[in-house]
Design a protein around this nucleic acid. Sequence first.
RNA 1: GGGGCGGUAGUUAAGUUGGUUAUAACGCCGGCCUGUCACGCCGGAGGUCGCGGGUUCGAGCCCCGUCCGCCCCGCCA
Length: 602
Amino acid sequence: MSSLLATGRTHDCGSLRREHVGNEVVLFGWVHRRRDHGGRIFVDLRDRAGLTQVVFGPDIDEGAHALADQLRSEFCIGIRGTVVDRGENENPNLPTGAIEVEAHTLEVFSTSATPPFVIADDDRLDVHENLRLAYRYLDLRRPCVQRNFLLRSRLYQITRSVLTRHGFWELETPYLVKYTPGGARNFLVPSRLNPGTFYALAESPQIYKQLFMVAGFDKYFQITRCFRDEDLRNDRQPEFTQIDVELSFATPERVFAPIEELVAEALRELAGHELELPLPRLSWREAMERFGTDKPDLRFGLELRDVTEVTRGCGFRVFESAPLVKGLCVPPEHAAPLTRSQLDKLTDFVKKREHGGAKGLAWARVEPDGSLKAPFAKNLSPEATAGIVRVMEAEPGSVLLFVADDFDTVHTALSALRLHLRDLLGLLDEASPSWRLAWVTEFPLFERTDDGRYVSAHHPFTSPLPEDVPLLDTDPASVHAQAYDLVMNGNEIGGGSIRIHRADVQAKVFEVLGLDEEEKQQKFGFLLEAFRYGPPPHGGIALGLDRIAMLLAGAESLRDVIAFPKTQRGHDLMTGCPTPVDEAQLAELYITHRPLPGRDDT
RNA sequence: GGGGCGGUAGUUAAGUUGGUUAUAACGCCGGCCUGUCACGCCGGAGGUCGCGGGUUCGAGCCCCGUCCGCCCCGCCA
């Protein structure tokens, strides 16, 4: 073994200060940058803790100086030397800038080929993502990337600390689970021992954690991987990490309390932000009405206003004939960028299918005398004009933007427009990031499919609000659930529910979902059987750990907080997976595949 | 399945109406340099313009197809 390795390092590259001057130290790390002045060679030595300037010179050590001439970027080296005060030459940009290490010994542990991109260009992430992913281990060397993973590591520790303090047991559930169609698409794992049958990779530990409650474990949590074979997005990976939580004798408030403490501590420790508890609660209905979405960004105003009533019989047919007319009021101080051509762009924006596909955007400016200047204004009755100005809380100089359509279209379009205006008009202060969290509660229990069937909005074990139970018979669409999401800055970071523990209510829900006895037994027989033996009332939540880490890190993508992520097409560019497999292994599993699409082998 | 953006030197980008030898910065290689810290100076190497086909006297540029990456819809909590 080399002498320095045997000695071991005395410090990391981020910790030396003026108080260490005179110490003999051993540092290990990578050559971040090298500046060769002939008689002086400076090396910024990097490890995960920081940078330390190391100096080589013939007067310090002739051999080390000669060897340092051969150093190049990303060589992995060890040095022994003396900490000296830099005095006038202090570098204020480095935490270790007050000192440098005069190297008496240099050992090259390993040389490095010229990396495909420069690791030291740390603050610039502008390397193509495919290259970053192909050389992920080098990408992960960058200090700015490493910071995200330190944050992520601390998030695990905070989670464990807070939840353990609250009496939760950390437990594990299987990844190889029973295949249940419906919900997210499963990854399948063939069973060699049972040819022709498959496990599924768990989409979530949902059913197992409920069985923990039946088992009397009372309070459970797990930081666990979940697998979903669905299309990827900026904030969606096929494997991701949840903080999964379940507790017995639960009410929504009893679920919220420890979770609020967890996010508060995470924000305090990782973002330096003191969260005010309890967090605001917002019913789903209120969130939709005020923001047009179930995950409102509460960092700015610009709330939706309903002018349906005041525009009945107003003289403008578009408004009169629509089931719902709502609008946004851009106050005068932000309205300047909204020129005529910009308003035309906003009209195109709301017409796009992904922004709701509204038929148009009606806009108006409020004149100093309180009248409206707009293409449609001449049609408006004075009463309607006054009503609009009042409801919109408009003042002279405000710009009003209206969408008239059905409930879904109006809210989708105005919600998208609201976020668009947030960015267009700079409604957030980028310099001082703010953190606005809220619980969105009382989601609808069911959603209607195109062919009129009911499906669970959350999952089939979600409990209705007690007062809505009778509606299961008469009007399932209006039943609200004891289901909730946790929303942070317009992102859903968690969701959960109180589960059904009463057999009669569960039976009713299955009835609405159209599950017959056979399907029930086939899909959930074991859970229903378990629920015959005194299940406690229970409920829980799952938090998206990756998303929380992404937001706290200020990252743009989930990929920035997952060490080895997949591309949008599900590829790992470093290993090249997924790949075909050996025919022999397929044969062992009794698997053949159909002709592949788009490959004409003939 | 659909819509949009992108792919030019190791990297990031520029490349005019289709026209001479495809540019720049950084990086890399060699040399010089004892106070730099994005060191500096001098010199040099480096190109399958993603891939395939087409139009043309001539294609990085136009057309068709295809692969890859990113963003979005559908899908997915």
